[in-house]
Design a protein around this nucleic acid. Sequence first.
DNA 1: TTTCAACGGTTACGAATGTAACGAACAGGT
DNA 2: ACCTGTTCGTTACATTCGTAACCGTTGAAA
Lengths: 152, 152
Amino acid sequence: MASDDTLPLEEFLPYRLNRLAESVSREFAKTYRDRHGLTRPEWRTFATLGQYGSMTATAIGVHSAMHKTKVSRAVSALEERKWLTRKPDPADRRTEHLSLTKAGLAAYREMVPLAKSFEKELLGKLGAKEREALLNGLQSLQSVLTVELSED
Amino acid sequence: MASDDTLPLEEFLPYRLNRLAESVSREFAKTYRDRHGLTRPEWRTFATLGQYGSMTATAIGVHSAMHKTKVSRAVSALEERKWLTRKPDPADRRTEHLSLTKAGLAAYREMVPLAKSFEKELLGKLGAKEREALLNGLQSLQSVLTVELSED
DNA sequence: TTTCAACGGTTACGAATGTAACGAACAGGT
DNA sequence: ACCTGTTCGTTACATTCGTAACCGTTGAAA
């Protein structure tokens, strides 16, 4: 029974989640950093566009929980790299529809298997039962939090 | 069945962990930010010292996976706040043993129940089974990663 | 004892981030 | 047509952060 005057950080949920997320992300970041020199925000925008084909900047921000300035800068960087193009919206001249160029798509197709095998390897270190528990647990927590995920 | 040319981010482990950690941490941060204006590194150093009584700066860094400069600055800030004192090591004049002052301990004792009830409330939104799954899942992942958790 | 690599901790400086303000475009009402 | 408020996206500025360099100290080897 835990004494009531101390907070054991090792068992404290925010602390645990942070350490895990940091550690896993950092590890995976090597993959796209070494390969293409992408930053984390760049990778996220990139991967979001790869998955969804075409999106506006704000949509990317909402979807990947990134601040809009982060997205803005990531988009510029990817554009400069010729991996991304902007297409004006005929109906609304404020928004731009972003999508990957041919080169961007090529890089994406090359990254997908790497990402998948990274995940597979990581999860493979767990037993089937533990893996199940982890994924289900995350799912439940996620669904509980969906409401509070807004940026501001 | 997932097609092999796309990476569904919503199911991608690093992505999921990040969103959850961010969201939970951000939410909890309100507690110590609103109350005392602590930053995240400050809170972590503070909570670590509260739990362990006395520690060196490097030890805190290792334990809480923070960069040593972060720790250094957090320590200065807490010292200025009169929540923390440094005691020289009689045997090694490079290291300092850090601990909370009386005022720091008072603040800590005040924070502990808040942290616990935050966690309890969050986990309370899950069913017993899901909670079990989450905690076990995190535990397994954690133990798989312990080796790779070094900072550099 | 002198030398030298390694360590604890701080700091300078450049990179990354968020807040706030902004310009341009839209939508609604008058 | 003209306000008024809101939205999309960018940018200026201040803050936070990490890399690298640094200082003083230690221990061990020559």
